[in-house]
Amino acid sequence: MGLTSLVLADARFPGGGHVHSGGVEEAVARGLVQDVETLRGFLLGRLRTAGLVAAAFAAAAARLAARGTDARGTDARGTDARGTDTDAWAAQASPAGAWAAQASVAGAWAAQASRAWGALDAEFDARTPSQAQREASRAQGRGTLRAVRAAWPSPVYDELGPRPHHALLVGAVCGIAGEPPEEAARCVAYLAVSGPASAAVRLLGLDPFAVNAVLIHLEPALDAVVETAVHTAAHTAVTEDLPAPGAPVLDLLAQAHVAHRGRLRLFAS
C-alpha cells in the first residue's frame, strides 16, 4: 500500500468522513445493530454491496486518472496515449464518436476523458438509488476534494466537478499518485466499513478491541471485493458492466435517517 491510499484510508484524514455513519446511526436507532455480532453482519453486507460498488468505481477511476496523467505527459511529446478501455467508456457515453475526428490528440483526449468521467458519474448515480446515500457520497467527495487539492494537485479534478462521488475521487487521487487500481479499491472498500465501525463504537459504546477484531475478520471478504472490483474495472469494455449489487435495507436506513430531521442525529448519514 502506497502512502496515498494509506493516508486516504486513515480515519484522521481531514475529508469530513467522521461525521458519516454509513447507515449505522439509523440501524442502531431501529435496534438492527445493537452489539458486536449484529455489527459484524451489517459490515459484511455493507462491504459486499455498497463497498463493492465503491471499490469497482474507485478502481475504474484510478485507471482513468492514471491514463489522463500519462496522456498529458505523452501529449507533450506528440504521442497518442489513449487507451482502449477508456475509448470504450467514452464511446459508450457518446456513441456518435464524431468529436474525435477533427480535434487534436490532446483535444480529443480531453473530450474523451471528460465523457468517460461523466459516464462513471452517471453509472455510479444509477447504482445509488437512495438520494440520501448519493448526497452523503457527494458530501464526502466535496470534503475530500478540499484536502486533496492541497496535497495532490492535479487538473484531473476539474473533470469530476465540485461535488464528485467520494469513491471516484479517491480512485482518481490514487491514479494520479501512481498507485495501482487495486490500492484504490482496497482503500474505499476499507472505508466502506471502517467509518461505520467507528460510528458504532461511538454510538453504542462497544468494546473498541472487539470491533477492531471484527474489521480484521472481514479481510477475506474485503480481498474478494477488491479482486472483483479490480477485475471488472480492468476487463469490462463499458462502464455499464461494473458491478451493481443492491442493498435494500441500507437504502431504507439512509432514507429514514434524513427523513427524521426533528430527531436527535449525531451523524450526517
Partner: peptide, 23 residues
C-alpha cells in the same frame, strides 16, 4: 444518450447477505 437512471443487481440465496441488516 441512453443515460442510465437505475442499475441494480439483487441477490437471494446467500445466507450472510440475507441476514445482514445492511441488505
Amino acid at each position: 444518450g441512453s443515460c442510465p437512471v437505475l442499475h441494480q443487481t439483487q441477490e437471494f440465496g446467500d445466507p450472510a447477505l440475507q441476514a445482514s441488516s445492511a441488505v
